[in-house]
Design a protein around this nucleic acid. Structure first.
Lengths: 245, 245
DNA sequence: GAGCCTGAATGATATGGATCAACGCACTCG
DNA sequence: CGAGTGCGTTGATCCATATCATTCAGGCTC
């Protein structure tokens, strides 16, 4: 076992329990095809347009996936979190459709599409996990589409802020904020300035408190309402009164 | 075989060749869990927020998947095409995150999440196909994010028009257009009027020809350039001159 | 054919957010 | 220490697209 490339068991492809039907040897063989790698913040795992030679299974840390246009406009497609699989969009080969950049320290398992295919064929449990992961990613993407397509700037920012709250939500503690204003803007289809203004406005209204590298949600309910889960009447009312206070 | 609920073999879950290791009986049993259904244009398969009791495998036809806000704003998240699986975002249960409406005549196989899970565990080939389908859907979603987040109205419309061209592209024949201006707008995060203006403009410039229920791409190259695959210089130039002609 | 309906095109005007520009503050480097 | 640099904030102005309103064209019914 000591020869396994993968010693820490934390990613979709690495956990023992995911290979119930297989022998130790088979498991070890699978793990041999995984290449463990570490990255520091701002390091690029791969760039949009590069030949997609490897897929990545994220063990820990966060990545931002971006796509940009020749003139420099850039869009964050998604923030990838531990457990997710990167680059399956390119299962058929070809090229990466986005750039992946580490936001934090990152540990990832690198694997070739062919090897992954073999693993999936060998272990339905893994395949199922991959499907679940993919579903989650698709869901994330669809949420962003909603935000981009039909929300106003304040609604977008609300939505973003709410997405920072961890699942089992301890509501209003300090939440780490790893993205700069610019990055938030690139995610929400806004400009740096607009994000800054909206957040300053929220802070003035005591909706959030902000500090260096973190924010604190002070009025979660207000954010949830402003985010679009509201009646036509309440929306119109709030929007009407939402000029400069 | 005659007792199988699924007789036409065209969806991810129905093709014989996808169950290489299984006996006739097992295959037949799997198919028993599929409920084949047919829908007409404008029929709703399910609504956003409904309990997600079933997943759907699309055999033929097209669907639009929409999400809307309480005040009526609506966003098309994706156009689902034959072969795709609908609603896996809800693999964990819960509720449909969007409404699915038939754009054409549609044939779909309905299946419960539990049954699907069983099938996936039994057939890695199927699981692999599902993963490929999901990847494709994710890719579609990410493209839309790009369009929504960083493109101007004409760029969005270009991108949309190009997406109508079938894979093995016979370039400039008549392409069926199943979406109204309103629906195109709902997809691209624009208004009906803006889409109408842009398309009228394109038609005047002989980029496209449009008719009732179809369009014809006359200058594909121009669309591809306007879509963002272009240099900074060419973009700036074109944008500068793109006022009212 | 008259009346009506629905989708698309077009015009006039308003506005949310982009853009351009300046400034403050913290940090780093020599 | 002062100069330089990066990020965020704030202000003034502009413009792409929304919004509101009207017209047009085709299809349907009576």
């Amino acid at each position: 076992m000591a020869t396994c490339a993968c010693e820490i068991n934390a990613c979709v492809l690495c956990e023992d329990r995911l290979y119930p039907g297989l022998s130790k040897e088979q498991i070890c063989q699978i793990r041999e095809s995984l290449i463990r790698e570490m990255y520091e913040p701002h390091e690029i795992l791969f760039r949009e347009g590069d030949p997609a030679d490897f897929l990545f299974s994220l063990r820990s840390g966060q990545l931002k996936l971006t796509s940009s246009m020749p003139d420099g406009r850039q869009q964050i497609l998604r923030i990838a979190v531990a457990g997710q699989l990167l680059g399956i969009e390119t299962f058929k080969g070809q090229r990466y459709p986005f750039t992946a950049e580490a936001l934090t320290d990152v540990v990832a398992c690198k694997i070739s599409p062919d090897d992954l295919r073999k693993i999936l064929e060998a272990s339905p449990t893994i395949a199922l996990r991959v499907i679940e992961t993919l579903s989650q990613e698709l869901d994330q993407a669809e949420s962003l589409i909603r935000d981009l397509g039909l929300k106003t700037a304040p609604e977008k920012v609300s939505s973003f802020l709410l997405s920072l709250i961890p699942q089992r939500g301890d509501s209003n503690g300090e939440l780490p904020l790893r993205l700069s204003r610019r990055e938030i803007a690139e995610m929400l289809g806004l400009t740096e300035e607009t994000v800054s203004r909206v957040m300053a406005d929220f802070a003035r209204k005591k909706i959030i408190g902000s500090g260096k590298g973190f924010i604190r949600i002070l009025d979660r309910k207000w954010l949830e309402e402003t985010n679009g889960v509201e009646t036509k009447a309440s929306s119109a009312g709030r929007r009407a009164q939402s000029g400069h206070s």
